[in-house]
Design a protein around this nucleic acid. Structure first.
Lengths: 236, 236
DNA sequence: GAGTGGTCTAGACCACCCC
DNA sequence: GGGTGGTCTAGACCACTCG
């Protein structure tokens, strides 16, 4: 366990357990150095993690202060700005997939550009409905280069493609670039998501990258607007 | 100008100007130390900025590599994950506001909790339509504590509240916690945003914080789905 | 002026990758 | 085994805040 990670975790737990009142000042960096027996840069890194997670605020010349947050918000934070697939996001709940399509095609010029392919290369073309506790919540349109993600089977799609990529292929996933929009469902989507009446969808378009910088996935996920939202913490 | 910032900017410009082919390896950190005459930690910080912006990928044991990105994407990045108000986001374009409401009320229990207020405290209650190049693109419902944001005038709302808070009140804005959803417009919103037919809205709910950790704004912005999107880079 | 966090250094050792 | 980036140290100086 890394020192700065361990310290960050300890501080985060203290805050989440309400050991500080909203707006209260944290121990000084110099004090923490002694307390934890590490150098100041290490303390700084630990506290900067909490800043990134939106839990505290640092002011040069004054100190570090716990943000004045609603209790529930404190618990929900630290997850925002992170990256994980559908299955990992809802770990512990019942997750399933219904496969509507699993073909190999040529990508459009648009997708080819995003995935750094030529239009006469091949990609998997996958459409899945993802179910959470037996209720359909999202339709995912996924394209991946067959050269990179070799040997994909129907069975894998039932579960987690990401787990296949990491555990079986031995790749590491590094990041995802996302764009979020609001859209209306198509008739097909209304049926698949069992939508009655008028309900918009949250569309998340994503290009995902391996740790060598190669894009391996272009996907469009359309979430039921009444189930899903998207959180983030922006620092100035 | 900070050293790591300057170096990050220089590297970013090189990448944006296409001086590297997709997937190409950057100079080693040790080499950059010599090239820029700084220590390795400083180089590391600079390169870590590029990682955060989604432009490069670092692999321990191998080196740092430029992501394989579409050219347009390279230019649009580095803005994602940042925080700015409406006026700042569209700097250079014609921005205006139509004020639909400007009152002082008691907050609901929900909003009071988010803003760390009591329900018998007072908040401004503001509704504005924001126009971009004379076209309405978003309706903003904003509440702010009157104790904190004192002396707000109708005139200020026409322009930028954030600029008032920073320049006139002398506060510093630190961060914003956001949640994004897809919703349908109300009849009133349809009218204000001049929506014909069926068009969903992208709803961004935000709590914004000063640099001392105090929340100063609870706002719900409902953007026309055909104009707006929301970008982010997630690192694993 | 005393004290805070921000930046930077020069160097060390470690985990990991690839040959 | 040679080389990469990751972590960490001990110390310095700076920019800023506040009494």
């Amino acid at each position: 366990m890394l020192k700065y990670e361990a310290i960050a975790r300890e501080l985060r737990e203290d805050i989440q357990q309400g050991k500080y009142t909203p707006g209260e000042q944290l121990a000084l960096e110099k004090e923490m150095c002694q307390q934890y027996g590490v150098s100041r840069i290490t303390i700084k890194r630990a506290v900067d993690e909490l800043v990134k997670q939106g839990l505290v605020v640092k002011r040069r010349g004054s100190g570090t202060f716990v943000k004045s947050l609603k209790d529930e918000d404190v618990k929900e934070l630290s997850m925002a700005n992170q990256f994980s697939g559908f299955a990992a996001t809802f770990k512990g709940r019942k997750v399933a997939s219904k496969i509507l399509r699993f073909e190999i095609i040529h990508p459009t010029a648009e997708v080819a550009a995003k995935l750094q392919l030529a239009v006469d290369d091949f990609v998997y073309d996958i459409i899945r409905v993802r179910l959470l506790d037996d209720r359909p919540v999202v339709v995912e349109y996924t394209q991946m280069p067959i050269q990179l993600i070799a040997g994909l089977k129907r069975q894998t799609l039932e579960k987690s493609i990401y787990s296949y990529i990491e555990k079986d292929l031995g790749y590491k996933i590094q990041s995802a670039h996302r764009t979020v929009r609001a859209v209306m469902p198509t008739d097909e989507e209304r049926e698949q998501l069992q939508i009655e009446g008028v309900l918009p969808l949250l569309e998340v378009t994503q290009v995902a990258f391996l740790d060598d910088g190669r894009p391996f996935e272009y996907s469009i996920a359309r979430h039921r607007g009444d189930y899903s939202n998207f959180r983030s913490v922006s620092i100035r």
